[in-house]
């Protein structure tokens, strides 16, 4: 029952922010720059996640959740949105998914 409640809370949190973020048709930008102006233009919930990954460089959803004090599943959803938007890269190593910002490649 407790696990079900936790899942419900996560779904409510994600739903709550669904209408306000930039994840709409045409908003997917491959290799978009996560610069400070982009951070400023993001909705609050995504900016918090993006700022955390900016500072960490490379992190799992659990690491990000540890910084933002939001649920791991919520951060996982936001990180995946940032991946689809082209701001963040994702790499799987075994069972873990790592999220990172590719800064050093020329573009």
């Amino acid at each position: 029952m407790e696990r079900l409640n936790q899942k419900m809370e996560v779904m409510i949190e994600i739903q709550k922010n669904n209408g306000s973020d930039a994840l709409k048709p045409g908003a997917m930008l491959p290799d978009a720059s996560l610069d400070v102006m982009t951070l400023l233009s993001m909705p609050d919930h995504l900016r918090k996640t993006a700022m955390t990954i900016c500072r960490s460089g490379r992190a799992t959803a659990e690491d990000v959740a540890g910084q933002t004090t939001r649920a791991r599943a919520v951060e996982s959803a936001y990180l995946n949105q940032l991946v689809i938007m082209g701001y963040v890269k994702k790499e799987r190593k075994g069972r873990k998914a790592y999220f990172f910002i590719e800064r050093e490649t020329e573009g």
């Binding site: 720059s33 996560l34 610069d35 400070v36 102006m37 900016c54 460089g57 910002i101 800064r103 050093e104 573009g107």
Partner: peptide, 8 residues
């Protein structure tokens, strides 16, 4: 892109 790398 440069500004993003500068932030990094």
């Amino acid at each position: 892109k440069w500004e993003m790398r500068a932030l990094g």
